[in-house]
């Protein structure tokens, strides 16, 4: 995992008004032992982390927290987390027993994240990028209005600084507690993607387990290149909903990365071990302008 510490090329503007310097976020520290949920083998957590949370025995790709993901993808020592000032949202005053703001506060406490996305400036194979990584641990990676604003500002940042956009997607879909305002985020994120496309900048999305609903049906599926991790569950409606609605038995391998590859929906299914180099190769090709 040793990587040369390469300089960042492209326009850099550290004082850009969109982005305040990041807080001291640290990747979730590995401690103790972890068990592979595929084969049950136990690992020292630090070693599992070094394996990018992929089981060397059965190859199962475990969930990666957003910040750890950013660290995995960025050239070493180039990662700079960007924290946007985004106010707290509760458009409906949602309360179904537990008030929505206290659910958000609890998720923040637990994950140490501001919202679903971790946005960072970084270089990938020296190509300057904005990384937007979702964290499934933050209310199921759900897309609320603050998360939508994070993604849109990540797009603005990419446009302002001429960076490529790389989004790692994992989500249960729209955040129900924000009702119609969360539906609107599909439009907001799409507007961000359109801005990146108009600037002629590359956008690569990586679909990871699980990815559903309004996230798949907006920015996750709007990229120039859509990659998926092996055996990730990806779709629009959840399997349970489809089974109940159609009374059909779901085919084997339904809504997996491999299923989507076979149906022409994703460009490639890529092992996590070669994900970084695959993205780098594409980014270098797209930025060559030869």
């Amino acid at each position: 995992m040793d990587r040369p510490n390469l300089p960042v090329i492209g326009r850099r503007n550290a004082a850009h008004p969109l982005a305040a310097p990041g807080p001291k976020l640290r990747p979730v520290a590995p401690a103790g032992t972890v068990e592979c949920r595929g084969c049950g083998r136990r690992f020292v957590a630090a070693r599992f982390e070094k394996h990018l949370r992929v089981c060397p025995d059965c190859g199962r790709h475990a969930v990666v927290p957003a910040l750890n993901r950013a660290v995995q993808l960025a050239d070493s020592a180039t990662l700079k987390v960007v924290r946007f000032e985004i106010g707290d949202r509760d458009p409906l005053g949602f309360d179904d027993g537990v008030p929505y703001p206290s659910r958000v506060a609890e998720a923040r406490q637990r994950t140490k994240l501001q919202e679903t996305f971790v946005v960072a400036r970084a270089a990938m194979g020296t190509v300057p990028v904005v990384l937007a990584c979702m964290d499934f641990g933050f209310l199921g990676g759900s897309l609320g209005s603050a998360a939508g604003e994070q993604f849109a500002r990540a797009c603005d940042l990419a446009v302002a600084e001429g960076r490529a956009l790389v989004a790692v997607c994992t989500s249960g879909g729209a955040r129900m507690q924000e009702g119609i305002a969360s539906l609107a985020q599909m439009a907001r994120c799409s507007a961000g993607v359109v801005a990146v496309a108009r600037a002629g900048l590359p956008y690569i999305s990586i679909l990871t387990d699980p990815c559903f609903g309004g996230v798949t049906a907006s920015f996750a599926a709007q990229a120039d290149v859509i990659l998926a991790e092996p055996h990730a569950r990806i779709g629009f409606a959840g399997g349970r909903v489809i089974e109940q609605a159609s009374h059909d038995r779901l085919p084997d391998g339904f809504q997996t990365s491999e299923f989507l590859l076979a149906h022409g929906m994703v460009d490639a299914v890529v092992d996590r071990g070669v994900l970084r180099e695959t993205i780098v190769r594409l980014l270098i090709g797209f930025s060559a302008r030869s």
């Binding site: 049906a217 599926a221 779709g235 629009f236 409606a237 909903v241 489809i242």
Partner: peptide
């Protein structure tokens, strides 16, 4: 929400 809709990329179409 159905098998065919997912096979043909419901999310992609939207």
């Amino acid at each position: 929400a159905g098998i065919g809709a997912e096979e043909r990329g419901q999310a992609w179409a939207i």
